[in-house]
């Protein structure tokens, strides 16, 4: 996993609540057996017109936001399906962080496992950020994971919370698997003492 330490980047204002994972990547893009290629399906229903051409009214297609690495969205981002493809689509497109007043649990976990930093900020901060980005699309946002702060284009700093273990993994690019594999003796011991009622016939 790519480590996440600091990021200074422009951001896209996505003024929508409850952006579910079917919006992030529709099911018809899930037919691959690899991770690659998901970026093409990102926000497909909003990004493309029915004839396949780019929809100029969708914010991601606004050339002023080209190259943005931070997405700023409304509450309950990533709700719905557990598809990790949603995270793969966001990262392949080039996003490194998503700011929202609240993330759905499964999406939040999936993001952390792929080096995509989910940043929870208050509703009022997100709303102000939308106004600011729409007025000044070139505004830079600075994220410092170690300090758990976001420096807004106004110079204001906003703090965000993150589980210390998850933070450590992101900072060092570690995934859970190595840690879990190191627990093999404990796992075997657990299995040996597990109540029979929890074992399949």
């Amino acid at each position: 996993m790519q480590p996440f330490t600091t990021l200074t980047a422009t951001a896209v204002p996505l003024r929508a609540e409850n952006v579910d994972t079917d919006q992030i990547i529709p099911a018809r893009y899930l037919t691959a057996v690899t991770r690659a290629g998901m970026g093409e399906g990102l926000f497909a229903l909003w990004r493309y017109r029915p004839d396949g051409s780019l929809n100029p009214d969708f914010v991601l297609n606004d050339p002023r936001f080209a190259g943005a690495q931070i997405l700023v969205a409304g509450r309950n981002f990533g709700s719905g399906s557990s598809r990790e493809h949603a995270v793969w689509a966001l990262t392949e497109y080039g996003f490194r962080a998503v700011i929202s007043p609240g993330f759905a649990d499964i999406f939040y976990n999936n993001a952390l496992k792929n080096g995509l930093l989910p940043i929870t900020l208050p509703e009022a901060t997100v709303s102000a950020l939308w106004d600011l980005l729409e007025a000044e699309p070139a505004s830079l946002i600075h994220v410092d994971l170690a300090a758990q702060t976001v420096t807004l284009p106004t110079g204001e700093q906003a703090a965000f919370a993150i589980d210390p273990y998850r933070k450590h993994c992101l900072l060092h690019g570690l995934d859970d698997l190595g840690y879990l594999l190191s627990k093999e003796p404990e796992i075997a011991a657990y299995e040996a003492r597990q109540p029979l009622a929890l074992v399949h016939a």
Binding site: N110, D176, I187
Partner: peptide, 23 residues
């Protein structure tokens, strides 16, 4: 019983365990 992403599917296949924060 709960849904997981594909990375976690890999973790369970390999270790029969998941790292979970208590809800």
């Amino acid at each position: 019983a709960f849904g997981i992403g594909t990375s976690e599917v890999g973790h369970v296949l390999a270790t029969q365990c998941l790292l979970q924060t208590k809800p």
